[in-house]
Simulated assay, not measured.
Amino acid sequence: MSEIDLSTARYSLLAVAAGIDGVLALLEQQSEWWEGGFAAFCLLELVKAQLERVLEDELPAA
């Protein structure tokens, strides 16, 4: 990948991570009354952790 492609990929993944943060906040609120909300929260938290590892290891900031 070229430098521009890596920069674009990193920016896109950061945008996805920001969106995940919003969904996690909603799931955390819903988990108080919906058991499935907690399970979804845990699963999405794992996905976010993997995304952050990719950002750190494969697409580090310049």
Rank of each mutant, 00 (worst) to 15 (best):
Y11D: 15
Y11H: 10
Y11S: 13
Y11P: 00
Y11V: 03
Y11R: 15
S12W: 09
S12H: 13
S12K: 10
S12Y: 11
L13Q: 07
L13Y: 03
L14P: 00
L14C: 02
L14M: 08
L14N: 06
L14F: 01
A15Q: 11
A15I: 09
A15W: 03
A15P: 00
A15M: 10
V16K: 01
V16R: 02
V16I: 10
V16Q: 01
A17D: 08
A17Y: 02
A17I: 05
A18C: 07
A18R: 13
A18L: 12
G19D: 15
G19Y: 07
G19Q: 10
G19F: 04
I20A: 01
I20G: 05
D21Y: 01
G22W: 10
G22E: 09
G22N: 12
G22K: 04
V23L: 14
V23I: 12
V23G: 01
V23T: 14
L24Q: 08
A25Y: 14
L26R: 15
L26F: 13
L27Y: 12
L27E: 09
L27A: 07
L27I: 07
L27C: 13
E28M: 01
E28I: 00
E28G: 06
Q29W: 06
Q29G: 03
Q30D: 08
Q30W: 06
S31T: 02
S31W: 05
S31I: 04
S31P: 00
E32M: 11
E32I: 10
W33A: 15
W33N: 15
W33K: 10
W33F: 15
W33C: 10
E35G: 02
G36K: 07
G37D: 08
G37C: 02
G37I: 05
F38T: 03
A39W: 01
A39C: 01
A40K: 05
F41D: 03
F41Q: 11
F41N: 05
L43V: 09
L43A: 04
L43E: 13
L43Y: 12
L44C: 01
L44S: 09
E45T: 08
E45H: 06
E45K: 12
L46R: 15
L46I: 12
V47I: 13
V47F: 14
V47C: 14
V47T: 15
K48H: 11
A49N: 12
A49F: 02
L51N: 13
